[in-house]
Amino acid sequence: MKFVTLESRGGNYMVVADNVAWLRVGENGQTLVGIIGSQPLLVTGTPDSVAQKLAAT
């Protein structure tokens, strides 16, 4: 299990990379991250930059 830190304007999240189901453009240049079995997280960055962080694990 590999954790990835994703930054948010309200604080940072540590998510398990294998539990990310989808990425979608959010509001104000942010990205919605779909987590299996949970509500989506709103994080900073584009879907491409978030995908790069997830793939680097």
Rank of each mutant, 00 (worst) to 15 (best):
M1L: 05
E7Q: 14
D18W: 03
P47S: 00
V16F: 08
A56T: 09
R9W: 12
S49I: 10
F3S: 15
S49K: 07
P47C: 07
E27A: 08
A56C: 07
G11C: 05
L6Y: 06
Q30T: 15
L54E: 06
R9A: 07
Q52W: 03
Q30F: 06
G10Y: 01
A17G: 03
V25G: 01
R24L: 14
V25E: 12
L23M: 02
V33H: 01
T31E: 00
Q39A: 14
T31I: 04
S49V: 13
D48G: 15
Q52V: 13
Q30V: 09
D18S: 09
P40I: 08
M1S: 03
T5C: 09
Q39E: 13
M14V: 11
V15F: 06
S38K: 12
S49M: 10
N19L: 11
E27W: 09
T44W: 07
V50D: 09
I36N: 14
A55F: 14
D18M: 14
S8N: 01
G26L: 04
V4Q: 11
V43L: 02
V15H: 08
P47A: 03
P40H: 03
D48I: 11
A56P: 04
E7N: 09
I36Q: 15
A21R: 05
A17P: 00
A55M: 15
N28V: 04
S49W: 00
T46I: 14
T46A: 07
V16Y: 10
P40N: 10
T31H: 06
N28T: 07
G29F: 15
T44Y: 06
G29N: 02
L23Q: 04
L32N: 06
F3Q: 12
A17Y: 05
S38V: 02
P47L: 10
G34E: 06
T31C: 00
